[in-house]
C-alpha cells in the first residue's frame, strides 16, 4: 500500500507546504475524479474511482495538522489509536483538563456565555502553542514528544468541539 504522502507526491514530514498540497490535490482531482471518466468502461471507471477515494482520504488526512501528525506517527510505528492517548500526557496536563472541564460545566450551568468564550479563547491559544511545539518536536525527531503534543491537541479539540456543540444548541434554541 502506498502511503498518503506518496499518493499526493509530497515529501513525508510534518511541515508541509499547504499551498502546494492544495494545488497538487486539485491537479490530481482533475485527472481522477469520476466526472473525468464518465463515458468509460466499468473497469476504468472503477479503477479511477478507487484512486479518487484514496486521493480524497490522503488529502483529508494531510491537510489537517493534528490528523497529519497522528498519521505520520503511525507510519513510524507509534499508534495513538483513535481516542485514547493519555499515556503520552504529563499528569499536570490531565489535571488542567479536569479543571477546565469543571469550569466549563459550571459556566454552562449558569449560562455564562462570556466565561465560556474566555475558556474557548484560552484553549485556542494553547492549541496554537501546542502546534508550534508539535512542529519542533518533529524537527527534532522526538516522536514521544510529538505524540504527547498530538494527544494534548486532541483533548483541546474535543474540548473546543464540546463548547461549540453547546453554543450551537443555545443558538438553535434561540432560533429554532
Amino acid at each position: 500500500m502506498t502511503d498518503h504522502f506518496e499518493i499526493l507526491g509530497i515529501p513525508r514530514g510534518f511541515r508541509v507546504d499547504e499551498r502546494a498540497l492544495e494545488t497538487r490535490y486539485r491537479e490530481l482531482s482533475r485527472l481522477f475524479h469520476p466526472d473525468r471518466h464518465a463515458g468509460r468502461s466499468a473497469a476504468d471507471r472503477r479503477a479511477a474511482l478507487e484512486k479518487m477515494v484514496q486521493i480524497n482520504e490522503a488529502y483529508r488526512t494531510l491537510r489537517e495538522p493534528v490528523r497529519r501528525a497522528a498519521y505520520l506517527l503511525s507510519l513510524r510505528g507509534l499508534e495513538l489509536g483513535e481516542t485514547d492517548g493519555s499515556k503520552f500526557l504529563p499528569p499536570d496536563f490531565l489535571m488542567e483538563v479536569m479543571e477546565r472541564r469543571e469550569a466549563f460545566e459550571e459556566a454552562r450551568s449558569r449560562g455564562d456565555r462570556e466565561r465560556v468564550q474566555a475558556l474557548a479563547q484560552q484553549a485556542r491559544r494553547e492549541r496554537d502553542e501546542a502546534l508550534e511545539a508539535l512542529a519542533s518536536a518533529f524537527d527534532r525527531d522526538d516522536d514521544k514528544e510529538a505524540a504527547s503534543q498530538v494527544s494534548k491537541l486532541r483533548y483541546l479539540d474535543r474540548f473546543l468541539a464540546d463548547i461549540r456543540a453547546w453554543e450551537d444548541r443555545v443558538f438553535e434554541e434561540e432560533n429554532g
Binding site: S41, D44, R46, A47
Partner: peptide, 17 residues
C-alpha cells in the same frame, strides 16, 4: 481487465507526480 485498469491508473498517478 480490472487489474489491468488498476495498474493503468497507478501508472497515470506516478506519471502525474
Amino acid at each position: 481487465s480490472t487489474d489491468f485498469a488498476r495498474r493503468r491508473m497507478e501508472k497515470a498517478l506516478k506519471e502525474a507526480l
